[in-house]
């Protein structure tokens, strides 16, 4: 599903847009007087953004002209929908758990995160859930009592 060629070209396009935005931000950087630095603050970021843009354009052309870069002509990003689903759902579950942690605190997030991430990955057997929960519990204990971390 989704050939590398298409995916990389889309990514390259998105990257260029992001680079443009970041360059626009950089041009607004202020250079306070304290440093006496010979180069203004926005110099390095802009030079690097230009470099990244150049490289992106080059490999973009590689994809357009030869269909691939570094020999990945004909490759696909995901072999099948199952693979994509597992990876992406795990990603979503992780990010959602983080949001929950931010809004509702660690305890809630922890209780939701553990099963949902395991589930997203494809865990179905109850004993595996049990092991994961135990591992999570032990980690929590070790960190709070061993290292004195305060999860809030």
């Amino acid at each position: 599903m989704i050939s590398q060629r298409v995916a990389n070209l889309v990514f390259a396009a998105m990257l260029m847009v992001t680079l443009a935005y970041m360059a626009w931000l950089a041009s607004g950087f202020e250079t306070p007087a304290l440093g006496g630095a010979t180069l203004p603050t926005h110099f390095f970021p802009l030079v690097l953004l230009a470099f990244i843009a150049t490289c992106t354009v080059i490999y973009g052309f590689e994809y357009i002209l030869t269909g691939g870069s570094g020999g990945d002509q004909g490759d696909v990003v995901y072999e099948d929908w199952l693979q994509a689903r597992r990876g992406l759902f795990t990603l979503i579950a992780t990010c959602a758990s983080f949001m929950i942690w931010r809004e509702f605190g660690f305890a809630v997030a922890g209780l939701i995160a553990t099963p949902s991430i395991a589930l997203a990955m494809g865990t179905r057997k109850l004993w595996q859930f049990a092991v994961i929960f135990m591992g999570a519990g032990m980690t929590y204990l070790v960190f709070t009592h061993g290292l004195g971390t305060q999860f809030s």
Partner: peptide, 24 residues
């Protein structure tokens, strides 16, 4: 090289230690 550039660029975030200016 693109990613090397991105890696380099990401380090410019924060307060510029040489001038005190804010970046990103």
């Amino acid at each position: 090289l693109t990613m090397a550039g991105v890696g380099l660029w990401l380090t410019t975030w924060g307060i510029d230690p040489l001038s005190g200016g804010e970046r990103y």
